[in-house]
Design a protein around this nucleic acid. Structure first.
Lengths: 168, 168
DNA sequence: TTAAACTTTCAATATATTTTGAAAGTTCAA
DNA sequence: TTGAACTTTCAAAATATATTGAAAGTTTAA
């Protein structure tokens, strides 16, 4: 396989995985494109490379910046904006974990905490079942939350080293 | 908050979280409903409780069964099918991890492995960047894969115990 | 100022996903 | 067999999500 075809495959695969995990396909593709590109790219070049409109490119790049995955660069004496992606995979993973925790896990944890406190007739199977499920899911979610917390602070090699030492 | 309202909130929250993570909202809601219901439910009852159509209920229940989260029960002398959900949270987490690994992670790993093998000019920055990104992501994905593997085999208390012992 | 070079916005459009519901299919007791 | 009681299917409709592109906005050099 030649490089251009390989790049294309990577961009497609990344886009598909993203869309399966609730991330807009175009956003994942733009990110993938920047990941395999050594230089910075302009909006124009991204539009061209992925055949997307100016509006789409602009919004997607803003999104990627809000996720902390892409940054703008200004070049002296130029009006154009240049974009590049952090290529450190561990940073990417942490950044995604951080944002999804904040945007999706935290709000659910808040609701689960409330629901855990709902009172009811302890003899009522409906109440028992509700309470058990909510409490158990809450515990699991909190464990995930704590693990993410640790991951956010950790160095990659230490993190996996620790995991595999235990799971040997 | 009273139980019926609390159930409703739980179903909504679960549906929202599901849809943010690429799982059909209705599917997550039906699952949530079954999780907080002590008895088995019929298609009819699920349609009623969530105001969804027969076709939707039928397809969603099949989906949930294919994910291994819900099972059918036949009652002696009855034609109707009764559905119930496994309420063990750790089983649920494992089952979801198992299916998503098979459906989404494995195919991507296969592509990444191929892309890792793409040859090119080692002096070419385009090749260098492509190769580094793909190789690094491949390593990360493999570590995730191994961790999931371990999780699938593990007991809940052992799993979290091990994680937190290390992450103290 | 002006106007060229660029970025941003957003209503309209296109696309993808989900849901409906009626018809077809199945099962089984009589 | 028949037909009542149920389940499944799937084309059409509804809804949700993503994309376009032209117009408006911004910035800067002259």
């Amino acid at each position: 396989m030649e490089l251009p075809e390989a790049k294309q495959k990577f961009i497609e695969a990344w886009g598909k995985l993203g869309s399966e995990w609730g991330i807009n396909r175009t956003m994942a593709q733009v990110h993938a494109l920047l990941l395999v590109t050594p230089e910075t790219l302009t909006t124009e070049e991204i539009m061209e490379a992925l055949s997307i409109s100016r509006g789409n490119a602009n919004m997607t790049l803003r999104d990627l910046m809000s996720w902390g995955l892409v940054e703008k660069q200004h070049k002296a004496g130029e009006r154009k904006e240049y974009f590049y992606a952090d290529k450190n995979t561990w940073n990417i993973a942490r950044q995604v974990a951080k944002e999804r925790r904040k945007r999706e896990l935290d709000p659910v944890l808040k609701i689960l905490d409330e629901l855990t406190k709902v009172e009811g007739d302890k003899k009522d199977p409906a109440y028992q079942t509700f309470n058990k499920s909510v409490t158990d899911i809450n515990k699991l979610a909190k464990n995930v939350d704590k693990t993410l917390e640790t991951m956010l602070k950790a160095e990659e090699s230490w993190f996996w080293g620790s995991i595999f030492k235990i799971f040997k």
